[in-house]
Design a protein around this nucleic acid. Structure first.
Lengths: 213, 213
DNA sequence: CTATCTTTGTGCACGCGTTCACAAAGACAT
DNA sequence: ATGTCTTTGTGAACGCGTGCACAAAGATAG
């Protein structure tokens, strides 16, 4: 029986072994003292807890480049997701196969949701259409929404929304890149108030009018 | 002079006003007691600290659906990013305009990086090509990489990599969806400390350390 | 100039998550 | 059986980030 110790797993994941054991303990006592964790059993238990063993039908609304990329993304199936339908508002796209699946028109959205028992929807429409699509999804019974459109969606209580901003990660990289570049000048992250204030350009310095949203 | 108080900002952002003030204080003393923060000045200071005022040329390697979606993504320009080049290994794509910009061939990767002073690269190739592309980018001088390919890249010290897995957010939604469903049925199990913050994501998201692939 | 009012900037205390450290549990050898 | 050895599961201590509460600072009015 192949096993792993919390120590091995912790080293591999780069975390503290005690924390890992405590985390596992929330799922139950699946380890054997003096031996470790049965790999296969542990994988199954974690998979079950995370919902990987269930089948989650999802719909993708908005089949532009991003929607098509998502439809083709291989990582979904292996994590228990099944793309039940691709939906787009453009009548010209209806019937066009994307990732081996015909695109359906927005008119049929409610029926598709209902027929497939979909509770998770992915929105990859332009920003302008997102809120309206969101409302139709929710009205049709969707209770979790993954939003790729650059808008904050407003939803009733009980509906989960997660917003994915593709530029945020890039932003973080740029932030660290800036740190790397400016490290030789001021060592610490905390900039002394006086020094920082002195970096201000004149009252008429080139100041951007609006913070990018 | 238009101003905002920490109280107003905190209410809008849904956070504690003291925390917000303390956070701002790390950037310097930009507020005026009894008045608040000068909006324009504050925006500029935050923008500068985050690197939004700099121009970051980036290259996107792998112009499939995802690469095209990224090239068309409007959020980049407003955050200080400039797509310097689109690169693909397919000779048939060379010259094809995507997002108003001709796709260039991988052969010219090094020259493109060098000529444009690019230090940030985006990889949206298939998994099999990612590591090789990564190595060429690094050799050419790139020190930050945003990886959309479903592979873990190995890089030398001093190079930052951030991996974006489009299915992770979906995974999190499914996890909570499962919770919703199982909540009314059995409430006896121990509930692990998982906090779901709507439309907000930590640096690494609230994803468990260990997860089966 | 003094008084009053508003809001910042921050010392301090509290709470929560992480880590330490060890007793308990099981495997395995004798 | 009994003892030794390994590794889990967890109580307790620690440390860090968050939030409270207030003095300091500046605006504004009299």
């Amino acid at each position: 029986m192949p096993t792993v110790s919390s120590e091995e797993l912790a080293a591999a994941a780069g975390v503290n072994s005690a924390k890992l054991r405590k985390d596992f303990s929330y799922l139950g006592s699946y380890g054997t003292r003096g031996v470790g964790y049965d790999v296969e059993y542990l994988v199954y238990q974690i998979s079950r807890e995370l919902g990987l063993t269930q089948d989650w039908p999802v719909v993708i609304v908005g089949i532009g480049n991003l929607g098509a990329a998502l439809a083709n993304y291989g990582g979904f199936a292996s994590r228990g997701f099944r793309v039940a339908a691709l939906i787009d508002a453009d009548p010209a796209m209806a019937g066009t196969p994307v990732a081996g699946m015909p695109v359906q028109h927005t008119d049929d959205l409610e029926k598709i949701i209902s027929d497939n028992g979909v509770s998770i929807g992915v929105i990859s429409t332009p920003a302008g259409a997102a809120q309206q699509v969101c409302e139709r999804l929710v009205a049709a019974g969707v209770t979790s929404i993954l939003n790729f459109a650059p808008t904050v969606l407003s939803v009733p209580d009980g509906v989960d929304v997660r917003k994915v901003d593709l530029s945020i990660e890039l932003q973080i990289l740029a932030f660290h890149e800036q740190r790397k570049a400016g490290e030789e000048a001021s060592d610490d992250g905390v900039v002394p108030p006086v020094a920082a204030k002195q970096q201000r350009k004149g009252p008429d310095g080139d100041v951007p009018a609006v913070m990018p949203a």
